[in-house]
């Protein structure tokens, strides 16, 4: 189809790998985690999957997950690049 106007198509990483925005990285202490899922529920960018793995390619490091974790199982750790 001739491109007549800006029609964008859905794709992962439409705005690039936003993981590079991060200053602090969430690190989960799996011993403490009770898999309540609140971190995934509150993640604005849906980078925490059902198995509660955090996709660091896209995690912006906002820290909501750490702030909301009732078990304090997530620590925000300074990125070292």
């Amino acid at each position: 189809m001739r491109e007549r106007l800006a029609l964008s198509r859905p794709k992962d990483g439409a705005s690039g790998k936003t993981g590079t925005w991060r200053t602090f990285r969430p690190v989960v202490d799996k011993e403490t985690c009770n898999a309540c899922g609140l971190c995934a529920q509150y993640c604005p960018d849906a980078v925490i999957d059902e198995e509660l793995n955090i996709d660091l390619d896209y995690c912006k490091g906002c820290g909501i997950c750490a702030n909301e974790c009732p078990k304090e199982a997530i620590a925000m750790v300074r990125e070292e690049r």
Binding site: K11, G16, D55, Y58, I64
Partner: peptide, 10 residues
């Protein structure tokens, strides 16, 4: 909402 938007962190 695919990974990832260009929204501000948080």
């Amino acid at each position: 909402l695919y990974k990832c938007t260009s929204a501000c962190a948080g």
